[in-house]
Structure formats: structure tokens, C-alpha cells
């Protein structure tokens, strides 16, 4: 069973984050069908009801649409996906800056550190 969960947090939230990742990376393309509730439940090792709840939450946020009798699909509206990506990035960067501030780094220092890190990673790749 593919995914390990942090049992201290609601599983449906973690599953949603996992699927958002796939959608933003376009591992799941716009308009692509998501695995059936049961398939995904077995694949990641959770209760099908948890998957249903995840799908429902995602549908409420217009990231996916469910078509009666056919299943659940990633939205074809690319702007929605772009917004999702932006929002996740925004949240994560916000958290990150907060954390850095908490260990006493100023914003300029954070930027500097980021640039250094990016440069060294680029070198490694080359």
C-alpha cells in the first residue's frame, strides 16, 4: 500500500494534499479521470469513505468534477489549477518565512540563503 500517513492528522486532508500535488504536477492532467474510490482506497490503504470524502471536498473547491455514473475527473479549467498551485505555493512560502523568522532570520537573509541554495542545486544537476 503506497502512501504513509501521519496518523496525527485527518487522513482525508493528507490524501487531498497528495492528490493536489499530482494535479499541480500534471501527473493527473486536466480532464483526466481520477482512480475510482475503491481503487484509490486499496492503493493507498485507507477506507473508501475517506477517499469519497476527499473527492467531495475537492469537488466543493471545484478542483474536480464528478460526472454521474462515470466517475470523478480533474477540472478542465486550467485557471483553477493555476490558482490552486498559486495558493498552495503561497501557503507553503508563508509557512516557510514564518519558520525562518522564528529562528531569527531576516527577510533579506532568507532571500540570500534561498539564492545560494538554488545556485548550488543547479550546479549539482549540471
Amino acid at each position: 500500500m503506497g502512501l504513509t500517513f501521519d496518523n496525527n492528522r485527518p487522513i482525508y486532508l493528507q490524501l487531498m494534499e497528495y492528490l493536489y500535488g499530482q494535479i499541480c504536477r500534471t501527473d493527473l492532467k486536466p480532464g483526466e479521470k481520477l482512480p475510482s474510490v475503491r481503487e484509490l482506497a486499496v492503493k493507498v490503504g485507507v477506507n473508501p469513505n475517506t477517499v469519497s470524502r476527499t473527492y467531495m471536498e475537492m469537488e466543493r473547491k471545484d478542483i474536480v468534477v464528478s460526472k454521474r455514473g462515470q466517475g470523478t475527473f480533474v477540472t478542465e479549467d486550467i485557471t483553477v489549477i493555476q490558482e490552486l498551485r498559486k495558493k498552495i505555493a503561497d501557503d507553503k512560502i508563508g509557512d516557510f518565512i514564518l519558520m525562518m523568522n522564528q529562528i531569527g532570520l531576516k527577510n533579506e537573509e532568507i532571500l540570500q540563503l534561498m539564492e545560494q541554495k538554488m545556485a548550488s542545486r543547479k550546479e549539482e544537476e549540471e
Binding site: 496518523n7 496525527n8 492528522r9 485527518p10 487522513i11 482525508y12 475517506t50 470524502r53
Partner: peptide
Amino acid sequence: EVLREQKGQSLV
């Protein structure tokens, strides 16, 4: 899920 949310801990 409510328990996990409220208590911020696993069922175990």
C-alpha cells in the same frame, strides 16, 4: 477524523 482533528493525535 473528528478525533484526529480535535486531538491532533492518532487513534493509537
